[in-house]
Nucleic acid binder design. Structure first.
Lengths: 339, 339
DNA sequence: CTGAAAGCGCTTACAG
DNA sequence: CTGAAAGCGCTTACAG
């Protein structure tokens, strides 16, 4: 009952060699129409599906892509994953996903994802350490980065987004339109390049408007709802005055709102709140969130596309920079409904 | 440069046979400590990692689990996936995930997930059709269901949750404590058993309180934020009067709140809103959502555990029923903060 | 257009 | 405790 149907069984039933059956299945060579019919019939009769591992071994190609993710808990990663899946499916690749959140150090040491089980990997931000990255690159193994620039001596292709200008526009809006003077910022994770550039955009907006950077207004939101909630709470408890908070991303913006509401503050009348990403929740928050739209899904799609090019030995641009866009809603203080 | 390091290379460097190297790596037999050391050194020198497909082929075991999901867009599935991953990782299994949302019919017809590339599969609700389910079961291929009962003649193990009683308690709370008289219900997807039993709980609560079931109060929320928003909008536009809405799940509850707010209605003063699941967003909504806590992650964990037992040829309980719990917050009208 | 046969990189009885 | 060799289920030059 558990005995597997093999290509040999199909060949026998069709009265033909396994070589020809293989050619028919893979469309890798012409097969006489008479034989094609008999093979097709045999396949359907026997319900034959090729054994993936045997194909992989014979072809020396896994037809699977590896994906290093930090976590799967945020809706952010669902969007990213959609983009990756879409392109991978188009090209008939299967996905192997590892979230650093779930995979223990021990498992990672066993090299859960690499040359032994994928044709190439995609790395989100710092979810894979430099050491392993360098090892793979040195072996010429196809790797693409998302939201992280290549170590300068390696030239690993990467897809990034326009963080700095986006935040610059966002914070400038707060200053120019809503006359905000004390804008708190919730930083993202330390090694996260998005976090770095978003802070740079924030600083640029301040300095261009002749406002001093005040360390008191800086907290760590970690691109995380609960962390952000606690961060804003700390600000409040330290009695720091602020009239706006740039939360780092939308998840954190949602946490900021919770903390403010819990303190009895009104948004945006007492404190304006803005985010980054324009995730689905952004428009559902109350008040609807003013934020920067980032093409999250596109990043996944483009990175996967690059990886496939790389695997096929085609040339790829080393860096793709995707644009972002200011989305005005109500949490900044604007009244009109722009969306 | 791209030449692979094989077990043979390790064997040569250690001056020993591949058989012994294999035994050492898999701890499948005793190896003299002298040889063990030399093998370990060779592995590290060469940076050797076994080729997954070759192992699969030789062992006749893929060490991977297949997962059929409807989509990845809701945070709900992140939780479920966490549970699955946790158990799979413990047992050293890899995951292959297919969301029906992303996978085209064409791909599915090619049998993307099955005996040729997994040791067993987990099926969420109706994300795999009966035909394929029956085919697999007839071949004795390990399958476990989540939120779906087995076709009666098949005895496929399943993990489900207490929907009916949960909703019964929830709706009874609305009636008894908040004196709600016209409670709208947003149905889930048609073939979804959770949807069926939740409606059953709703009906039971009504009838036990001598309230008539009014078809006017029924709409389709599809366990989806946007669909639910539109559904409540329809109710409002049809001028149906209601003082509460059981939204089917938390995603839909969030959509209900949006529609009500857009219509200028206050929650819970004008209309109470309740959900099901107690997802992370539930406590973040404004007002915080009264709902039923479902052990989402546990469902994933238990289903995966069952599947592993099945693969190992161990006996499993045919049906695991996980309890749910009423979580009172503010969206029902309660003032105290219970959580 | 087709077939015989080697080979992909492992594991595992079998014999010692 | 160890090794030689068969076998897992495919694909693909090679020869025809």
């Amino acid at each position: 009952m558990k005995t597997r149907v093999r290509i040999e069984d199909v060949a026998k039933r069709a009265g033909i060699s396994t070589a020809t059956v293989s050619r028919y299945i893979n469309r890798s060579d012409y097969v006489s129409s008479k034989n094609a019919e008999r093979i097709q019939a045999a396949i359907e009769d026997l319900n034959y599906v090729p054994h993936a591992a045997a194909q992989t071994l014979a072809r020396q190609k896994t037809m699977t892509l590896g994906l290093f993710f930090p976590s799967l808990t945020s809706a952010y990663f669902s969007s990213l994953l959609r983009g990756v899946e879409m392109r991978a499916n188009q090209a008939n690749y299967t996905l192997l996903i590892h979230s650093s959140e779930m995979v223990t150090k021990e498992i990672r040491k066993k090299r859960a994802l690499g040359e032994h089980n994928t044709d190439g990997i995609i790395v989100f931000s710092d979810s894979l350490d430099d050491e392993e990255l360098i090892r793979l690159a040195n072996r010429n193994f196809p790797v693409v980065l998302m939201h992280r620039s290549s170590p300068s001596f390696l030239n690993i292709p990467t897809v990034i987004i326009e963080n700095k200008n986006g935040v610059y526009n966002l914070v400038s809006h707060l200053i120019e339109v809503h006359d905000c003077r004390r804008i708190a910022i919730l930083r993202g994770p330390e090694k996260h390049e998005n976090a770095y550039w978003r802070e740079a955009g924030y600083r640029k907006a301040l300095s261009e408007h002749n406002m001093a950077f005040d360390p008191d207004l800086v907290e760590c939101g970690e691109f995380n709802t609960e962390q952000a909630r606690l961060a804003v709470k700390r600000l409040l408890e330290k009695n720091i005055k602020f009239d706006a908070v740039f939360s780092g991303d939308d998840d954190a913006a949602s946490g900021s709102m919770m903390a403010l509401r819990e303190a009895g503050l009104r948004i945006p009348e007492d404190v304006a709140v803005v985010g980054f990403d324009d995730q689905i929740i952004a428009s559902h928050l109350s008040p609807p969130l003013t934020t920067i739209r980032a093409p999250i899904e596109q990043v996944g799609f483009q990175a996967t596309d690059k990886l496939i090019q790389l695997i096929d030995g085609k040339p790829v641009e080393l860096q793709t920079l995707l644009p972002t866009e200011l989305i005005i809603r109500h949490s900044c203080g604007c009244k009109e409904n722009f969306h």
